[in-house]
């Protein structure tokens, strides 16, 4: 086990312990020791399943992700209002578009965040990601133009490095 992989293990242990402590609500010695055993067991199984790495424990994103979330939240609220307006206006108000966009992210993690952010903001859905081209389906041309403007792309890119 190298230093690098043990970092992810420690992060996993911390996350799992927090989940346990937050969930349990009983802090006697017995349940806490059960918790410790459970966490270790899960870490062991996760190692066997080969799912402990930089993809499952995105440490490199660091603190910047919070700022990104805040920004994303604002976007989500705005686009939600739009979609709901369209729902009540009826099917005539939409004119769906499919577009292929380039994504500037290098890692799969970055692409995932970008793709999921696009899907999370209603009005746009990621249909497919292949290499660095993303196929997006949108309810209207405006949302595509917004994505083409590239603000979200840049923000996700900034998370990466």
């Amino acid at each position: 086990m190298t230093i690098k992989s043990s970092r992810y293990t420690i992060s996993l242990i911390v996350v799992l312990s927090l989940i346990w402590i937050g969930n349990s609500g009983f802090y006697n010695a017995m349940l806490l020791s059960f918790g410790a055993v459970s966490v270790l067991f899960v870490v062991f199984v996760a190692h066997r399943l080969e799912i402990v790495d930089e993809e499952s424990q995105p440490l490199q994103l660091g603190r910047r992700i919070f700022a990104f979330w805040m920004w994303l939240l604002k976007e989500i609220v705005q686009s939600n209002i739009q979609v709901i307006k369209r729902i009540w206006l009826g099917p005539k108000s939409i004119s769906p578009v499919v577009m292929q966009l380039k994504m500037s992210q290098q890692t799969d993690m970055g692409k995932t965040i970008y793709g999921n952010s696009v899907t999370l903001t209603p009005g746009t859905v990621t249909l497919d990601i292949e290499d660095d081209v993303m196929t997006v389906y949108a309810l209207s041309y405006d949302s595509i133009q917004y994505l083409q403007g590239g603000e979200m792309d840049r923000r996700v890119k900034r998370l990466e490095d």
Binding site: N80, V83, I84, I87, P91, I94, P96, T119, L120, P122, G123, T124, V125, L139
Partner: peptide, 8 residues
Amino acid sequence: SRMHAAGV
């Protein structure tokens, strides 16, 4: 398009 509605 229904998918967007569900997403909301």
